[in-house]
């Protein structure tokens, strides 16, 4: 595991947040290309191919990492921000849509987190952003998150972002919670993620909840979002003059339509 940088941070705003990170000299943070809002003089930006966690892996390694990033819907490049000045410098990253930014201490969480793709905002240098492939066909198709999620690995601090208000829940061993598809933001790898048929054909058709729930079974910690971006987008879309109703979220066709994409 690469060396982690310890970073201090502060989150500003309520519904449309940004996180300000304080970098000590020679400390660095990685972020999704395009997420930076402002940085103080002395911080230098460096764009790397792949996810920047392994600096010595060579060309093929970088290419492989970059390919994985394409799968998760990220851009091919990541940006590293290094404080080359003397003294502490601040840099901030903004969330791309209304929602909350959640800090995650990966060290405390057991070194690994799985989150919705596109959820990653920024992290201390050394955190690697990989893919977690959904191994259950049904979950991939109907679970609301698609086949591909992001896997954050390392011992540092990572920031993820999701829509609406975020609910943080701790599941005891064996405790199970049913979640609307598309509302899962992040989970510990110890949590079992599955789907459950809604039960009655009448509810499946008319309840508006789709055909399946996502189920999460503990032990472990999970984060849920109150407003998946796709839901917001579909409301905005259907409210747009001249376009009419957009695609219904969580429907059978929607799941099939975005075969690889899932809900979000």
């Amino acid at each position: 595991m690469a060396r982690m940088d310890v970073i201090d941070y502060q989150i500003f705003g309520s519904e449309m947040q940004y996180v300000e990170i304080e970098l000590d000299p020679a400390e660095a943070a990685v972020a999704e290309a395009g997420g930076m809002m402002y940085m103080e003089n002395g911080i230098e930006m460096e764009t790397v191919f792949g996810d920047g966690s392994q600096q010595k892996s060579g060309f093929t390694g970088a290419l492989l990492g970059a390919g994985k990033r394409l799968l998760t819907g990220e851009s091919l490049f990541m940006t590293i921000f290094i404080n080359r000045g003397s003294g502490k410098k601040k840099i901030s990253f903004a969330a791309p849509y209304p929602g909350k930014i959640v800090p995650m201490d990966l060290k405390e969480l057991g070194g690994q987190m799985i989150c919705q793709k596109d959820a990653f905002l920024c992290a201390a240098k050394g955190v690697s952003v990989g893919i977690a492939f959904q191994k259950k066909l049904g979950v991939g198709l109907f679970g609301g998150e698609g086949f591909i999620m992001q896997k954050l690995e390392g011992d540092g601090l990572a920031f993820i972002h999701a829509g609406g208000t975020l609910a943080e829940k701790n599941l005891a061993p064996g405790e199970m919670i049913r979640v609307d598809t598309g509302c899962i933001v992040a989970l510990q790898p110890s949590v079992t993620y599955d789907i459950e048929y809604i039960g009655k054909i009448k509810s499946a058709l008319f309840s508006g909840e789709g055909f399946f729930y996502a189920t999460l079974q503990g032990p472990g910690k999970i984060w849920l979002q109150s407003l998946p971006l796709s839901r917001l987008a579909s409301r905005l879309y259907s409210a747009m003059p001249g376009i009419g109703r957009g695609r219904e979220e969580g429907s059978l066709l929607g799941g099939l339509g975005g075969l690889l994409d899932g809900d979000n």
Binding site: A172, P173, S190, G220, K221
Partner: peptide, 14 residues
């Protein structure tokens, strides 16, 4: 390994 239970940290203790 991560262990879970009442009274310890809810996201598991190494």
């Amino acid at each position: 390994v991560l262990s879970f239970g009442p009274g310890i940290r809810p996201h598991g203790e190494r």
